[in-house]
Nucleic acid binder design. Sequence first.
DNA 1: GCCCATCGTCGAAGCGCTTCGACGAATTTT
DNA 2: AAAATTCGTCGAAGCGCTTCGACGATGGGC
Lengths: 338, 338
Amino acid sequence: MPTINDVAKAAGVSPSTVSYVLSGRRPISAETRARVQAAIAELGFHPHAGARALASSKTNVIALVAPLRVDVNVPVIMQFATAVVTAARSFNHDVLLLTKDEGTAGLERVAHSTMVDALILMDLERDDLRIPALRKLKQPSVLIGLPADHTGIACVDLDFAAAARVALTHLAVHGHRRIGLVGPSPAVYRRQTTYADRFLTGFLETSVDLGLQTVTHPCEPGAEGVRSCMADLDAELAGLTALVVHNEEALRPLLDLLHATGRRVPEDVSVVAVCPRDVATAMPVHLTSIDIPAHDVGTLAVETVIRLLDGRRVEYTRLLAPSLVERESCREISSSHR
Amino acid sequence: MPTINDVAKAAGVSPSTVSYVLSGRRPISAETRARVQAAIAELGFHPHAGARALASSKTNVIALVAPLRVDVNVPVIMQFATAVVTAARSFNHDVLLLTKDEGTAGLERVAHSTMVDALILMDLERDDLRIPALRKLKQPSVLIGLPADHTGIACVDLDFAAAARVALTHLAVHGHRRIGLVGPSPAVYRRQTTYADRFLTGFLETSVDLGLQTVTHPCEPGAEGVRSCMADLDAELAGLTALVVHNEEALRPLLDLLHATGRRVPEDVSVVAVCPRDVATAMPVHLTSIDIPAHDVGTLAVETVIRLLDGRRVEYTRLLAPSLVERESCREISSSHR
DNA sequence: GCCCATCGTCGAAGCGCTTCGACGAATTTT
DNA sequence: AAAATTCGTCGAAGCGCTTCGACGATGGGC
């Protein structure tokens, strides 16, 4: 491997000049620059990342802490990861992948040993123990999610409260007055993953605002979970004409159940789902849905990290506006049914 | 951040002694070691990764090159990634996540700049362009997959040929003689992802060996793809009593189709799937399946990397034996049907 | 009781890069 | 025309660690 000294010799300049050509931090004459670049190309020189990090205190690496359990929402996680890596590369950074289960220790390890310049975390809980740890690090962090006390830490997410509002409003506009929410699994509530609460709050507020009759229920995964969730919803509010589903795993078995019990979608019951676009269109009835813009959120997280590293100002809470796409699972209710 | 010098002063020893305590490369007396460790703990010392890499030419980081397109088999990819990160951590290594779409350039970038000690790649194609590039790197690499010419590069994967053999044999033992293969999508064949070929080869060989009548067909994703695939299979071989499905995405729509056309599983048609365990059990009929042992493969890949880094010998081709788990989708065929 | 090997520690060199101050030369200002 | 800037480059220091050779102190073999 050639070093910066080899390049310097080949180009007939000093090593520092090569460094300045690379970084652009000082003016270099066009000829010199050309000679240096030629030497770099010819020798196939790549600066040694460790040496660079040591000298400059910058690694150009971002840590991404992902929940690598397989129980959660795999495709969405994957989309976040993709977006983060791609965006990071576009800013000339790389991504170090950590698992959530290393917990606080993992964050401190990579931060203290100066392996990364910044951290992006996903799957935050309401009172996430990692937050106080993050505050103590010299590296900035960006959260994908919105825990309770995130003072001083930038957060990026879909605006789940607004998403609930949009979903409900869409149904209300189409004449629905009795609406059920099929929520995430109890495990998600138990973990206090904040999007569940935010969605629920938005849902309840909007149903008051619009004068709707609504019921809500978490929903265990699997056919059995869906069955009992629907039973509960039906029991608590007769004559449901629409369902909002905030539970990706439940979607498929829910549709199966509705089908099996002779409730047609959308003729008998309208459905609005919150899920990635492709999940919505993979269903037998293409679902009217609110997309989880994982790609946008991931990209925004990286942009925020970069701004932070550049010392620029950032908004500490960025909630992306939800967008509802109409497909085939909602229908207008005739006034006689209202 | 305290440095090794700070620790040395606090413990009243020289920096090199601290280093030897950390690495264990020279004998250190028990008292000295204790004092040093106390100082490390008290100061919260973490060695600077860059400095370490520079001085020792070791980063303790492994690159993982993953296909982050969303079209392929997301859960399996995710399981590989999880396994790799977890296993790497257990050997005190971290994982740098790269996307396949950076191609050869990405590999060279991280290798030449000494960001990683080794590379693990997944989603290899038959004549993958990255292989020659890998050969030129000073870092060793391990492939998850089995491209055509992988001389000198360690490969780890499920033995897909054996998997096909096991699937067919299972069906044959249960009396099936006319069997169809629902293969991966044509896109997978086109990309020459090698597992498709290996499975197909094993399938054809075994059907000859066992004297079975078989037909095979790739299968486009979605309900439409499944329909036309089944139509083709039925047209080419009447009286199919069993299906081997080597296509995760097709599984669900396939079962829907069979249901819709009145072919009961397993009464009218038996099914053996090749897919992760949880996918098999998520279906309405729990499928007899051959697991894709993503976790084992990922772990083995890391173990191989570590051996390579330690200069130990490794087997250059490690194909994991498939294991079939019986569930509810296969039944014995009475001899009258044979 | 002497020689050698081993043990435990230290000092210094060096890994490859960035960055700061310095310094002629060229250019502008007064 | 002299003084002050700016431009383009260099040399050297230093980032924090590992590792090699050296060296006094022990201990064993004879």
